[in-house]
Every structure is written in C-alpha cells, then in structure tokens.
Design a protein around this nucleic acid. Structure first.
Lengths: 199, 199
DNA sequence: CAAATAAGCTAATACGCATAGTAGAGATGT
DNA sequence: ACATCTCTACTATGCGTATTAGCTTATTTG
C-alpha cells in the first residue's frame, strides 16, 4: 500500500474543487477521499474533523478574496473603489460558489487567522468609506449596509434567486449606483430621526 | 398502539418549532418524531421526504410573511411603506429564524403554491416602487436591490455577523434611509453608463 | 357488523461522520 | 547495510441520519 503523499494543503485544494463543483453542503469525506485516491479515515491524519476542514475552506476563501480585492482596489478611490470592491466580490462568488458559501459558516468556528484576514478585509471597506468622507459610527453603519447589500445580491444571484439571467449585470450596476448615490449624500439626507418620526 | 392523530399541518407545526429553536439544518425526522410522540418512519404517512417537509416550511414561511407585510403596509406609501416592508421582514426573521432560512432552499424545490405566494410578495415590492415613480425595468432592478440588501442585512444579523449588537437597529435605519434616498433619485443620478464609463 | 383505508409499528438497508487499533512505507541513526 | 522509529493509510466498528418494506390494528365506511 503505497502512500498518497497527502498534506493539509492538498486536502484543502481537493475540497475546494468539490465544494465549488457540487456545493459546500455535499462535501463529504467519502467524496473527498475518492477524489484523492484514498480511504476516508485516512483524511483524519491531515484534518481534525469535517468542521475543521470547512474552517480551513473559510480561511482559504478569505485569503483569496482579500488578495483579489487589494489588487482590484490598488490606486483608486471613491466610486471606482466601491465598484471594484463589489465586482471583485461578485466575480469571486461566481468563480468559487463553494468557497463563497463557506463565508456563511458560524463565525464562532472561524480560526484566528481567518478572523484576522476578515479584519483586513473590513479595513478595505472602511477605506472606501473614508473616500466618501465617512468615519466613526457613520463609517460603521455605512460599511454594514454596503457589506449586507453586496452579500445579499450575490447570494441571490448565485442561489438562482433572480428569474431572468440576462439583466442581472444591469441590476448589479444599479446596486453599485444606488450605494454610490446614498453614500455621497450620507448622512445629510439620510437622517434616522426623520425616518423614525415619519413612521 | 393508540394513534397519535397526526396530519400534515400538525407535522409542519412541530417542524416550525424545532427549526426556529435549533436551526433548520438540525431538523431531523428523529427529533420531529420524538416531539410528536411517534416513531420516525410514521412521519412518511404525512410527508414524502425531508426535502418535501422543508418545502412545506418554505410555503408556511411565505404565507406568514406575506400576511404580516400586507397588514404592515396597509394604507401607507412611499418612505413609510418601504420602512414597513423592511421592518416586517426583519421582525419575521427574528421571530422565526428557522423559517427565515427556509427561504434559502433551492427555488427549484419550491411548491407551486409557494411560488405563487412569492409572486404576490414581489407585487408588494413593486407597489413600493410605483410610489417612487418607478415602473418597467427600472422597477425590476430597484426591487432586486431592495430585496437583496434587506435579505443580506437580515442574514448577517440573524447569523451573528455583526459584532456589536447595540447599534444594529441604527444600522438598519441607515439601510432604509440609504434605500429611500437612492430610490428617490432613481434613475436620475444613478446612470449605469456613467458608472461604467468611469470604471 | 364486515370490509376497506390508512396510521402507526418493527426491521432492515444505505450512507454520513468519527474512532480504535494495525501494518507497512519512508526517514533516521548507527 | 541494517535496525529503529515515526507517521500515513488501512480495516473494522459504532452511531446517527434518511428511507423502504411489510405487518398490525385503529378508524372509518358501506
């Protein structure tokens, strides 16, 4: 019985392929072992359990997305930076649907490294906010809105939530435009109190 | 062996309780049967399979949300209608986290009834868009943005994606305000071409 | 009251993750 | 070259899922 020469990286690589092809939920040790030409229990020599493997997938996903976003945002600011940020996220989700859904695992299960990578990613978003003149609590609220709307849109698109495929690109441009418009006027016309009073 | 007197509604009721309490993913026939005082295989007399049960949960969720949203939106329009639409969705997700995640099941598995209910719900959203003077493709794109951003925000909140709990209410108001501002100016300042040219 | 319907059961299959213990390949040291 | 040691991959096993088959019997229907 010759050795397969596995290591953690090779296992995670194969898991990425399976997750992207069949969906993260259908990633199993049986399938993964088959892919690697090995029996399922052998994987426990490289990974503690299935949950741990998925945590590694989350780390991998965060690293890839962070690097791609840094590249895309290099040297630009304002509306262009916002668009680059959003488009990179969307492109990543389309290229790696399995890794994309790895972001939705319980944050409590993320590794420390993943948490740090996520912090760096949030810092990129906050940099965009600075370009719109936002800081402090304003920047936090605005970042949450940007993050939530991008993630919601991409989830819907990847999950097949939009009926007509053709015009989704236009809808995404609309999202970016609406974010840009409202960020440009924040917090002047937003006024939580006004909205609450109107309610 | 006395009969338990089950039927589809009773089974779905119990499934709702379990899904909301423990999460949709941990809804199992074993747990459900235990809750109903019955053995697991007996459930197949009322439901085809686990996937079918979850489809019923989706239908139930859509009906509840549609009714609540109709009530909340009765007699109001514009900014107030938008806020009522969004707040009803958020309140529903908090009250029924299990049912909320049932919305994310593959749409292909939805029943026809669920699909029709969803159409009615989209009609409510389109009515809001009319209040902002939007129709046709503009309304479709704007509806997608509203739907995506609300869903993304609520997913993040329910999933624990926001660090500090305290200010999430403010962030949600920010989201509603930003949507209102950008919808009010749509499509004047949005201009897909402008953004694309800038890119 | 008899017969048909259907709700509950037990038993069994198939597949998932996970652990324990074993054998041997590859590395290391003499 | 040989002996030893480590660690990878294995077989065997257990437990928890969903699901099916076939039986029993409560309930309903004619």
């Amino acid at each position: 019985m010759p050795r397969a020469g596995l290591n953690l990286d090779a296992v995670v690589d194969a898991a990425v392929v399976i997750a992207d092809a069949d969906g993260l939920d259908s990633l199993s040790f049986a399938k993964l072992a088959m892919e690697l030409g090995v029996r399922a229990p052998s994987l426990y020599n490289h990974v503690e359990c299935l949950g741990s493997l998925k945590a590694h997938l989350t780390s991998r996903a965060l690293s890839l997305l962070l690097d791609a976003t840094r590249d895309a945002m290099a040297g630009i600011a304002g509306r262009e930076a916002l668009a680059a940020f959003g488009r990179t996220q969307r492109d990543f989700a389309k290229a790696h649907p399995g890794l994309w859904s790895a972001f939705k695992l319980p944050i409590a299960q993320w590794s420390d490294a993943a948490q740090r990578t996520a912090d760096s990613y949030v810092a990129l978003a906050l940099a965009i906010m600075r370009g719109y003149g936002l800081a402090g609590d304003d920047a936090i609220h605005a970042t949450r809105v940007v993050r939530a709307s991008l993630q919601g849109f991409i989830d819907l698109e990847v999950g097949g939530g939009f009926g007509l495929k053709q015009k989704v690109d236009l809808s995404f441009d609309t999202l970016l435009s609406m974010l840009h418009v409202s960020l440009s006027q924040y917090p002047v016309t937003t006024g939580h109190k006004q909205l609450r009073a109107a309610k």
